[in-house]
């Protein structure tokens, strides 16, 4: 579903390329872990496949179409959903409104369906009271579950997550891993998770290590 060809990226000078000639293929219904040392370029890679930035070299295609020709904004709107370490919720809203906003912005098939959003939040363990108070009053684990619920409410077939468990304790981490597995297998999406944690990588269907400018499959 997501095809990466000869991808290369550097910040200031080409000699300092983070990675070069990356060729990878990510499939629908599968979960992928990307591991690597801090500073190796995992977040940078993720931002490229999420359409947040443009590659220096090579091409990324979604279902056979270059994401540049789709248009990065449209690509983000319809095809990719992102989960961040810092949750990235709209802080002036309730969890429910965060979900409704995302559903409206991405033109989700459930757009405007408040019940669906509530149900999703309930599934992820939020009480009705928690749903309507400001997101900043929730714990880190709760906020991350809201962020994941947001992704689940949207129709994007590609889900990328950058250290989604980075701020979470053991128990919450297990919950989140389970959720991502569900998203990949039950909702038939492609999940790509950047992580430091071996547990998380182990739970995923596939695992790639980024080291010395190249990705190598570990699983």
């Amino acid at each position: 579903m997501l095809t990466i060809k000869n991808l290369g990226y550097w910040y200031d000078r080409q000699e300092n390329s983070l990675f070069e000639n990356v060729n990878l293929e990510f499939e629908q219904g599968q979960s992928y872990a990307i591991v690597g040392q801090s500073g190796s370029g995992k977040t940078t890679f993720l931002s490229l496949i999420a359409g947040l930035d443009k590659p220096r070299a090579g091409e990324i295609s979604f279902n056979g179409k270059g994401i540049n020709s789709i248009g990065l904004t449209k690509y983000r709107q319809y095809n990719v959903s992102i989960v961040f370490q810092s949750y990235n919720l709209l802080t002036y809203m309730s969890p429910l409104n965060n979900l409704l906003t995302a559903m409206a912005v991405t033109q989700s098939s459930h757009k405007g369906d408040k019940k669906y959003a509530q149900e999703m939040l309930r599934k992820l363990g939020l009480t009705d009271e928690q749903m309507t108070k400001n997101v900043q009053r929730l714990s880190g684990g709760q906020q991350q579950r809201v962020a994941i619920a947001r992704t689940m409410c949207c129709d994007a077939k590609l889900v990328v997550a950058d250290e989604p468990t980075g701020n979470l304790d053991e128990e919450n981490t297990q919950d989140v891993i389970q959720l991502f597995q569900k998203i990949a297998h039950e909702q038939n999406r492609c999940v790509i998770i950047v992580t430091h944690e071996p547990d998380v990588a182990a739970a995923c269907d596939h695992s790639y290590r980024l080291a010395h400018h190249v990705f190598t499959a570990e699983k």
């Binding site: 999420a50 947040l52 904004t73 449209k74 690509y75 983000r76 709107q77 319809y78 992102i82 961040f84 990235n88 919720l89 709209l90 802080t91 002036y92 906003t101 995302a102 912005v105 991405t106």
Partner: peptide, 14 residues
């Protein structure tokens, strides 16, 4: 800025 980033990442138009 953060809020703008969140909206942009969702694919909201500028």
């Amino acid at each position: 800025r953060y809020e703008i980033g969140v909206l942009l990442s969702m694919g909201e138009s500028r």
